[in-house]
């Protein structure tokens, strides 16, 4: 089975935010919850660079390691999903995540922040595929439909790629060869440098 990954080519990211609204549109994500966001550094200065950030579905995901309620599991494709039924809203995953991906409906320093929400790679969660329950809790399951995440599919400049890690790495490599420079495939070392865990825990 292929390993699902995101790849962001910052040389092409123009901060148009299509990825953000595509995600909201497809998954019914409410105001205030941002499964994906675009971050710009050196805003307004030479070298201004934007990156689109969401859960990267890390190979050895820190969120899974720290979660006291063991809500996370990784699919055979490497997609990191979680159970909202089990989540206690403690926020540990947020502190552990190198990408700031976990989102919470309530802002509080103490007590539960509500059920954690994050990017599912458009793969839903632990409920029947494409059931109403799955949509309400996790959003669409495009993967089960044989489709890839909508954020990448709709990216105006194809800066954001999603899919089989080998395939998208190849697309990116061809681009780098054509234009003569890379952009670092932002976040890849952090997310995927470690070997894929063969352990897949399904609740």
């Amino acid at each position: 089975m292929a390993r699902a990954k995101f790849l962001l080519d910052s040389a092409r990211c123009i901060e148009c935010n299509a990825c953000v609204t595509a995600c909201k549109n497809e998954n019914g994500v409410p105001w205030g919850i941002n499964r994906r966001r675009v971050v710009t550094i050196r805003d307004g200065k030479p070298g201004e660079t934007s990156v689109s950030v969401a859960c990267m579905h890390c190979s050895d995901a820190p969120c899974m390691a720290v979660c006291p309620a063991d809500v996370f599991y990784q699919t055979e494709d490497g997609i990191v999903l979680h159970s909202k039924d089990l989540c206690i809203g403690c926020g540990y995953c947020f502190y552990a995540c190198p990408f700031g991906a976990p989102q919470f409906p309530k802002a509080t320093n103490f007590g539960s922040r509500g059920k954690m929400d994050k990017c599912t790679f458009c793969a839903g969660g632990p409920a029947e595929n494409n059931s109403e329950e799955e949509y309400e809790k996790y959003g669409r399951n495009r993967i089960a439909e044989g489709k890839l995440p909508l954020c990448a599919e709709m990216c105006s400049t194809s800066a954001l790629l999603a899919g089989d890690g080998d395939v998208i790495a190849d697309v990116y490599r061809q681009r780098v060869v054509a234009r003569g420079f890379g952009s670092g495939a932002w976040g890849w070392n952090t997310a995927y440098n470690k070997p894929t865990s063969e352990f897949s825990s399904k609740p």
Binding site: A18, C19, V20, T21, A22, E153, M154, S156, T157, S158
Partner: peptide, 13 residues
Amino acid sequence: MGTHCCKGAAVRE
């Protein structure tokens, strides 16, 4: 070719 900006990706609204 399938793509949009944030406005195009939000027209369903």
